[in-house]
Amino acid sequence: MLSPKRTKFRKAHKGRIHGVAKGGYTLNFGSYGLKAQEPARITARQIEAARRAVTRHIRRAGRVWIRIFPDVPVSQKPAEVRQGKGKGSPEYWACRVKPGRIMFELDGVDQDLAERAFELAAAKLPVKCKFVVRWGEGS
């Protein structure tokens, strides 16, 4: 699973996701992409599950690019612990995704295969997604 190698601070504020993607909303590497339509926090586990769904479906024929990185540490308090006594310990990593963000890109496979692969990947993610193709290439 993806996670930062080292961080300046162990714990981060929860934060809120406002607005739409300011960058990373166009295809940069592959011919096909999976674009988020809603704001959400996507965990490293979900990214990995989606990546596996894609690579398994395309039978490792093409190439997959992951355009998001989980750099937000999410903390949780243990079960049956009263409120207070400080913030919980970091449990997993997540990525804040804004609407419009291209999360995955894919190349080297047919459009039908890519569409199905991303359909499977989208099922692993907590956001509504859209399959995108470059303008002029079956869009």
Binding site: R52, R56, R60, G62, R63, G108
Partner: peptide
């Protein structure tokens, strides 16, 4: 470029989950 499947038969994910999950999927 050569796809990863062509470069190495054993990939990093195969060992841990590929067999069981692939069959289940």
């Amino acid at each position: 470029i050569a796809p990863r499947g062509l470069l190495s038969a054993a990939s990093e994910e195969e060992g841990e989950t590929e067999g069981g999950e692939a069959a289940a999927d």
